[in-house]
Simulated assay, not measured.
Amino acid sequence: MSAGRLLSVLLLLQSRGRLSARAIAEELGVSVRTAYRDVERLQGAGIPVYAEPGRAGGYRLLDGYRTRLTGISEGEARALLFAGLPDAAADLGLAEEVSAARLKLLAALPAGPREEAARTAAVFHVDAPGWYREPERTPYLPLFVDATLTRRVMQVRYRRWRAPQEVSRRLHPYGLVLKSGVWYVVAATEDAAAPSPTTATYRVAQVLDATLGDERFDRPREFELGAYWASYLADFRARRYTGTATIRLSPRGRLRLPDNVAPEVVRAVDATATAVGGEGWVEAVVPTESTAHACGELLRLGADVEVVAPAELRRAMTDTVGSLARTYGLTGPA
């Protein structure tokens, strides 16, 4: 009999709720008979495990029973998810809890596993923010954490990109997402014109003011943060690119492409590139957001790119290059 396996059964029941003997066996890689015996041993040790009969039945712990083998507090348990993300934990106001939970976990381990955990921590470091920019200031992020966990309504002032730029919103925060070092809150937005709140995504750094109210909200049972975010990204990509452009690239331009444009543009070049002329130049069709945005991105490649179509983008490139030539012609050396 493995004491470690019995502990695993206990923690499975504590974290998952009702589980059949077959489900326990599959999780632990043992036989169903062994799973039955392990549950009986837990019961014999005084752990309040009871069986529920029927097709949807299984084993579960008595309501309210929790083991505190580690002595971890509620706040430290919240922080465990960010144990390997110290910067994210600090943003959320959980830095002290992460440190305390980590110390308790290490203290609970035997000498061998504790040393292995320390060696692993010494060779991995996560730095979420992207290059070439300062981390965003998010003073209201801890307030969003509180609102999300306690399901309390928030009143915020928010700055957006379209007019009117400053708006007020009553939010039901459903969850927080860290994307490339930028925090977003996914929240249902109350609108007098709509019969029910609509779910939207807000950049936390754009929140100008926020207050936490006493009113509670119910998070929909069917809402799943990861699935929502995947759908949001897919919709964002679909709305992001509204046109296409035909471009020509030199070998050096194609090599520099991943450092200067979005991955979708690189994939489009790889999928549509055909050889033109000599010296390794290729022609490809790429997606574009707008004329101004495409012009700014492609100009990073200098003389290693030529826009063939549409005419509007080609004119924008010509006008910008001409303006640069005039500027440097006036200010450069004689």
Score class of each variant (00 low, 15 high):
1 M>Y: 02
7 L>D: 14
10 L>K: 11
18 R>M: 12
24 I>P: 08
24 I>Y: 13
36 Y>T: 01
41 R>W: 11
44 G>K: 13
46 G>N: 09
50 Y>V: 07
56 A>G: 11
57 G>F: 14
62 L>Y: 03
62 L>W: 03
63 D>S: 07
69 L>K: 06
70 T>S: 11
72 I>V: 15
75 G>P: 02
79 A>D: 11
82 F>L: 14
83 A>T: 14
87 D>F: 11
89 A>C: 14
92 L>Q: 07
92 L>M: 09
102 R>P: 00
104 K>C: 04
106 L>E: 15
107 A>C: 05
108 A>K: 08
111 A>I: 09
114 R>K: 12
118 A>P: 00
124 F>S: 01
131 W>K: 01
134 E>A: 15
145 V>T: 11
146 D>Q: 13
150 T>R: 13
155 Q>R: 13
156 V>N: 01
166 E>T: 13
172 H>W: 06
176 L>S: 04
178 L>C: 04
180 S>M: 07
183 W>S: 10
184 Y>C: 07
185 V>Y: 06
192 A>H: 06
193 A>M: 06
195 P>C: 05
199 T>M: 04
204 V>T: 14
209 D>P: 01
211 T>K: 06
217 F>N: 00
224 E>Y: 07
229 W>I: 06
231 S>M: 09
232 Y>N: 09
235 D>Q: 13
236 F>Q: 13
242 T>D: 00
243 G>R: 03
247 I>K: 08
260 N>M: 09
262 A>R: 11
270 D>Y: 02
271 A>C: 04
273 A>I: 13
273 A>H: 12
279 E>P: 05
291 T>V: 15
296 G>K: 01
300 R>I: 01
300 R>A: 08
303 A>N: 09
310 P>V: 04
310 P>K: 05
311 A>W: 04
322 G>T: 03
324 L>S: 12
326 R>W: 13
330 L>R: 14
